[in-house]
């Protein structure tokens, strides 16, 4: 299970690194979604366990020794994925409008509000 945690934190750090260093707006948005993937992986891997099965059972049918996977993180991941999708959609629409107005995608030119 610890391998999942390493991968998810690697994704988060990779996403942040991409946001910080890339000067193209699209790459910044990509970085944001990579960070989202990292957090989603983290959420899912918290509830999961190797030998767990899906927590679906009929009444009184639970055999002793069965091991259920925790369903709540999966529900949270669904919400987090939806939110990540909306944020990316909003960011992309803003990038399109910025391109129309500023004519460039380079973050170093888009700095009218400073100081």
């Amino acid at each position: 299970m610890t391998f999942n945690y390493f991968v998810s934190f690697f994704f988060i750090v990779l996403g942040l690194f991409c946001i910080i260093t890339r000067h193209n707006l699209f790459k910044v948005v990509i970085g944001m979604s990579v960070v989202d993937y990292g957090t989603n992986l983290l959420i899912v891997s918290i509830g999961a366990s190797n030998k767990g099965t899906a927590p679906i059972y009929a009444e009184g049918e639970i055999l002793p020794g069965t091991w259920f996977v925790d369903p709540i993180p999966q529900a949270l991941t669904l919400t987090s994925i939806v939110i990540g999708a909306c944020i990316t959609a909003m960011a992309l629409s803003l990038v399109i409008k910025i391109y129309h107005r500023y004519g460039t995608l380079d973050t170093r030119e888009i700095r009218r509000l400073h100081g």
Binding site: I19, L42, I43, S80, I98, R112, L113
Partner: peptide, 30 residues
């Protein structure tokens, strides 16, 4: 002047804040 730019910056760095709230919540749940 600068409305889209301000909104984009607010979204990008604001999502950093939301990410840290989410990770904090999940670690507490863990």
């Amino acid at each position: 002047e600068g409305a889209l730019e301000g909104a984009f910056k607010y979204l990008v760095v604001g999502s950093l804040g939301s990410m840290s709230i989410l990770v904090g919540t999940i670690l507490i749940y863990a």
